[in-house]
Design a protein around this nucleic acid. Structure first.
Length: 260
DNA sequence: AATAAAATCAACCGCACCCTA
DNA sequence: GTAGGGTGCGGTTGATTTTAT
């Protein structure tokens, strides 16, 4: 193909970066940019692979990176975003200006995961909606949330299957629904649930996040079963607010009104 | 003060996806 | 259509720092 081999690792330096290397990398990028990471180290005179340069720049040297401890607000944001997005660290980082995916990943594994675990252990209570709180969903009173079983049941999919989620004319989202609802088995849930393509994600993050949030819910449990999982933490207010928000986005906007 | 254990975080690795020849 | 390169992402590692004994 006429291209250079992918990785020439021979003789390349690994491990922590020195201030001199940092300076070389910064200066080079300031002047020439970084259109080709692979070629960059050679051009800059660095004995590093392009991957290493890219990582160093993105995670440490970029001028807009915010250093220092995470604020309470940032940590709560990470927790909430992780509830919706899972381990998609880059997507989470995109919501937190100045923070990198690596940094967020680290803080999650070192602080937040433990904190959530402690919360759940110390307050080992089912996530029951407050009795005096009229639930955002008219029919169900109790909701179960399962972290790793994001697909709704077939019974509820049947109400969603023909739904197209579009909230505004400017929204170019292409939320598609399954064209083939041939079976009610759970294996078909993936193809049955409204899908969001990459274009939609980039153009309409708000709606996309809402969809992810709903992805995480067990729609079949809307029919009156108990919320037991601690996945969403045990702060019912957070869950209520979260669901209220996305409910407004989707249901009141006519998106998945069939759900009711 | 010395040492062990735990916590932290920068960096590496491997994989997947996309693009190009 | 296919192979290979470039890039980005998430998981993991291991060196360093902090805390506990």
């Amino acid at each position: 193909m006429g291209r250079a081999p992918c990785c020439e690792k021979m003789g390349l330096k690994k491990g922590p970066w020195t201030p001199q290397e940092d300076q070389i990398l910064i200066s080079h990028i300031q002047i020439f940019g970084h259109t080709n990471w692979r070629a960059l180290p050679k051009q800059a005179g660095l004995l590093r692979c392009g991957k290493s340069c890219r990582l160093r720049w993105i995670n440490y040297l970029k001028p807009d990176i915010k250093r220092g401890n995470f604020t309470q607000e940032e940590e709560e944001s990470i927790i909430k975003l992780h509830e919706m997005l899972g381990n998609r660290w880059s997507a989470i980082a995109a919501k937190l200006p100045g923070r990198t995916d690596n940094e967020i990943k680290n803080v999650w594994h070192t602080h937040l995961k433990k904190r959530l675990k402690r919360r759940n252990e110390s307050n080992n209570v089912s996530l029951l909606p407050k009795s005096d709180n009229s639930n955002i969903f008219t029919t169900p009173k109790l909701i179960e949330i399962s972290p790793m079983s994001p697909q709704p049941s077939s019974s509820d999919i049947s109400t969603l299957s023909e739904t197209s989620i579009v909230t505004s004319e400017t929204n170019s989202a292409s939320l598609t629904t399954s064209e083939n609802m041939e079976s009610s088995s759970d294996e078909n849930m993936t193809s049955s649930f409204p899908l969001i393509d990459d274009e939609f994600w980039s153009e309409s993050e708000l709606i996309s996040m809402g969809s992810n949030f709903f992805d995480e819910l067990q729609f079949d449990q809307f029919q009156g079963e108990t919320m037991e999982s601690g996945y969403f933490g045990n702060d019912q207010n957070i869950i209520d607010n979260e669901m209220d928000f996305w409910y407004n986005v989707f249901v009141k906007s006519g998106g998945i009104g069939e759900l009711q």
